[in-house]
């Protein structure tokens, strides 16, 4: 192996992930090549520096927060279940009432046309920049009825996503985990607000 080939394998060498034959070849090369030795030392140093990065610890109320999240999720699931039944039972009830009364009525659970938002697919425009990332149907306890809630992220100065960055990493499609519905209200990178999102309930 020449220096270039050794370099290609150095990373796996320090991780002990080469076959024993290749390991011996790299070892033999390192004994006589100072530039590859230097390269190995640099890689090992970087690893050390990564391992020494100051660790974070979870806040004291973390377990509480997790369980609050679980309860919220369960409540949402129950609401969805009821909603699913409402979509079947209510029109059926309307139909029966309609037939009985001779009146056709299906407006009980219809949302006004203006509030219908396309779900999932995000659209980002350069100036107004209102994008709908997700929406869901929830039971609104204050109103005492079902409401459609949409999460609307708002941002400014957006540049398009470069698709090649994530080419072969797999996402939710594989494991079936959907991306979280509600992004945190706001986060900041390099002290510049990147995205402000808020939840709006639309009736």
């Amino acid at each position: 192996m020449n220096c270039h080939q050794i370099n290609e394998n150095l990373s796996a060498f320090i991780d002990n992930e080469l076959s024993s034959d290749d390991t011996n070849i790299v070892k033999a090369h390192l004994i006589r090549c100072s530039s590859c030795r230097q390269q190995r030392d640099k890689m090992e140093e970087i690893g050390r520096n990564i391992r020494y990065m100051a660790p974070l610890t979870t806040p004291a109320d973390f377990e509480f927060r997790v369980f609050a999240g679980i309860r919220k999720h369960e409540a949402r699931r129950t609401n969805r279940f009821f909603w699913r039944w409402q979509t079947i039972l209510l029109p059926a009830a309307c139909l029966i009432v309609g037939i009985l009364l001779g009146v056709t009525s299906n407006s009980v659970f219809n949302f006004p046309e203006s509030s219908l938002l396309t779900s999932s697919e995000s659209t980002v425009e350069s100036d107004s920049l209102v994008a709908v990332s997700d929406q869901e149907i929830l039971y609104d306890y204050h109103l005492g009825r079902f409401a459609r809630r949409a999460i609307i992220p708002v941002a400014v100065d957006v540049i398009p996503e470069s698709p090649d960055v994530f080419d072969s990493l797999s996402f939710d499609e594989q494991s079936g985990f959907d991306s979280g519905i509600s992004p945190p209200p706001q986060y900041v990178l390099d002290n510049i607000p990147m995205r402000v999102s808020y939840e709006r309930t639309i009736y």
Binding site: S122, V124, A131, S133, P153, A155, V156, D157, V158, I159, P160, E161, S162, V165, F166, L169, S170, F171, D172, S175, F177, S179, G180, P183, L189, D190, I192, P193, M194, R195
Partner: peptide
């Protein structure tokens, strides 16, 4: 870790979609 990776990568992907053009690039 697979769940965690998916969460983090999804977030990064979503963030890229709404990425800011950094004007004051002084890290």
């Amino acid at each position: 870790y697979r769940i965690a990776s998916n969460m983090a990568i999804n977030e990064l992907r979503r963030r890229k979609r709404w990425r800011f053009v950094t004007i004051n690039n002084n890290p």
